[in-house]
Structure formats: C-alpha cells, structure tokens
Design a protein around this nucleic acid. Structure first.
Lengths: 126, 126, 126, 126
DNA sequence: GTGGTCTAGACCACG
DNA sequence: GTGGTCTAGACCACC
C-alpha cells in the first residue's frame, strides 16, 4: 500500500504523509479506518519505527488522523475536508509554477491540453 | 539587482542561482555579460562569500556560466537554452500539482483561466 | 451509570476511577454499596474486563473500595474523605493554572466571577 | 535558563515547550531572539539532542518560533500573541478544575483568596 | 498487541 | 557552527 522512494530528496516521513493524504482523498482509506500499525509498517517497508511514528504524529497534529495509544491510528471524520482545504492553498503555488514554465518557452496550449487531459481522464470523486 | 530573503526556507545560494537564471531568461543579463564579483556581491548583500561562490559554482557546473580565473564569471552563449531545457523538466511536476488540485476539488475552469490570464497578460521579451 | 469516551486521551481505566470518585462524592454511590461486577460492567460498556479490573484495583489501593473475593467490590466507609483529601492536592495545580491565565492576559475579575458563579449555582449534597 | 524535572511524568520536550512559552510571555526571551542551539542545550541539560529538536519543532509548528537551518531557532514576531490566545482556551479547563475542588470540599473563599494573591503579587506584563 | 517518549549516534545541507 | 532526518534499540503505559 505505502511505497517509499529512498532515492528521493523528500524525507521519508513526508512521503508517507503525502501518500496517506492521497489514499484518503481517493477513498482508498476512509474515515474511521485504522492506519497500519507503526511496527507493521516499519517492517513491511524496512524502515525505522520512529520514522513511521513521525509521519503519524504529523498527520495527527494536522487533525487528519487521531491516534489512540494502545489502540491504533485512525482517520478523522473530516480528514478529507482538512486535506482539501490545505491543498487549495497550493493554487497560488501553481501560478508561480506556470509563470516559470512560460519563461522557459512552454506554450500556453501545452498547459491547457495537459489540464484538460487530467480532468477528462478520471471521474471526480466528491 | 540580486535580493536575498534570509527568512526563506530556500537556501541562499539557491535563491541566487534562481535569480541569475531568471535574469538571463528575461534578458536582463545577456551572454558574455560578467556577473558581479564574489567580493562585491558578498558585501552588497551582507552575505558570506562562500555562499556566493557556491551559487556561482552551481551555475558553472550547469554550464550556464564559465569563470575565468582572475577575471570573473561570464554568462555562456547557450545559457538561456540550458535553463529552458532544465525548466521544461518541471512540466511533469506541473502535472502532479494539477492532479493534486483536482483531488482537492479545484475545478478545471479555474486552472484554465489562470493559465490564460498568465499568458495573455504582458508578453515577456524572449 | 458509567460512561466511556473511547476517543479521549484519558485512559479508560482512569475515566472509570474518576467517575466512581465523582459518584461517591455526589452521593450517587454510598459507603457499603457494591460496585457493578467486573463482568457486568465489561459487557455493558463493551470493554475488556482487564480494564475494569485495573480501575477497581486502583480504587482499592487508594482505600476507596475494598473487594471481597467471590462477593464483589464495596465502597469503604471513609471513601469520600479519602477522595477529598486527594483532590485537595489539586489546589496547587489550580495555582499554576491561574498564573498561566494571568500571563495570558485573563483579568482577575474573570476568574473571580467564574468562581462565584460555580459556588452560587446549586448546592451539591455533600 | 531551562530546567528539566526528570521525575515528572510530563515529557521532557513538553517541559521545554512550556518553559519557552513562559520565558516569552514574561519577556525573558523576546521576538527575534535566538533560542539556545540544539547541541548547546542538549549538553547543558544532559539531554539527547533529538529531544530538544522535538521541542523546537513543536514550537515551530505552533508558529511561536521559526527555525532557519544552519542559522538557529528564532522567536517569531507574534509569538506572545499566539501563546496568549492558546492559553485563553484553558479558561474552560479552569472551570472543570474549580468544580472538582468544590466537590472536594474546598471553600469558595480559599479560591478567591488564591486568585487575589496571585494578581496582587506581581505586575501585569502587557 | 498498540502508540509515545527517550537515548545514542550517525549523516546531510547550509553558512 | 547550525537545524533536519534517520537508524537502532530501549522502556513505558494502555488494552
């Protein structure tokens, strides 16, 4: 389920956070579901438990997950909502990204086509 | 000319590199032009000379500038081309970003409009 | 009678202990009364019997209840007194809390009014 | 400056966070000041650097502090404000605390006197 | 079994 | 020198 790219410069715990968020947004993990236990995931990914713990703690402080000691780590009710509102803030980042590409000689059409292809591809999950 | 945001999480040397690239793409600096000397820039920005040096070295290894010992650091002939081809790699990053925004409920129209507004507003000289 | 909030960060056994103490202080349970059996309570609350047992053991070591093997768990004669003396230790915690609130800009009047409202509103039977 | 009570059940990193907040509220540490370096503090308190790091990270995510890698950890401009607004939320906790004390037989006068003595003792820092 | 905290020691990027 | 990440391994409380 989770996958680690150890060559990436992105910290492992951040990769886990982003993947968890994606799983929640796409409905693979639902509210109330329990995330894999720290130990389980650490062995299945061959990663130190502390690193998993850090990822779960991060998700917890963002309110996406709540962890019950001795029980497990569970997806909050409004998890998807929290993630979406956070991601919407990335809209301004998109602007900067496109401006850079424009400077690099990327044509408007290329971006428009990319956008359309992404939105036509899959169904929107609401 | 150069401007440093010391509170940014972006490394100072990286800020310098990106600004130099932008100056080249926008034509503010042209092929053959000499970059400010390490010593000059370090005092005018109140920055450690090593940091300037690192930025220049980075630009040099990318082939964007070449340094002539005892003379200075000069913009290569194909500098703009190198930068553009590098930045084109960001196209895939754009795809990931748009996919995220889609999941977050951002509408296709919003992105299309953003793109159009960026490309319609003022032509850059390149 | 007992109520468990499984999402609380407060351990379940601690919730049981505190609720039992409150029931005793407020007179809902009196000296000599028998607490619900471990088995009964465990099914009615859908909780592991070990957890109930731990709560009862805790109450027992504090001298608030005593358990008669094969019979049940009974409230001691001086239960209320023990609880009160223990809770009086919380007085110092109150001091720390008020000092924090003072630093945070909470006015003296606010605290005085809160205190008065608590003490004026409805006498407890004890 | 910082002090650790290793006997306390309160996690060390939390003790550090609370103390830092207190230092900021009382003006011992001001906006823009740099906190002791992770390594310095770890040796002076005989504590693992990771534990200090965790405390600083916590302060950072709360916006009380911002850390610049390679530079240090600095108090934010609105640090005191953030701490105060957070602490004001503890007002409701105070209510529960006082209600408990009432049940334990603590007299209204005792609490009123405690409050007055705290507020008369020192000057209010604004 | 679960999550949470801590220690010890390592490596990295940055200045 | 600085903060940030990670590993390895330990101990605790709780269920």
């Amino acid at each position: 389920m989770f996958f680690i790219n150890s060559m990436s410069s992105e910290p492992i715990y951040e990769q886990l956070v982003l993947q968890a968020e994606e799983f929640i947004l796409t409905g693979i993990i639902k509210s109330g579901d329990m995330l894999p236990s720290v130990r389980n995931l650490s062995v299945s990914l061959s990663i130190n438990p502390n690193t998993i713990q850090k990822a779960y703690t991060e998700l917890s402080t963002r309110g996406i997950v709540f962890s019950v000691p001795g029980k497990g780590c569970f997806v909050s009710n409004n998890a998807a909502q929290i993630i979406r509102s956070k991601n919407r803030d990335n809209f301004s980042a998109l602007k900067a990204q496109i401006e850079k590409l424009k400077l690099s000689g990327v044509k408007e059409e290329e971006i428009l086509n990319l956008t359309k292809s992404i939105y036509e591809g899959g169904q929107h999950n609401d």
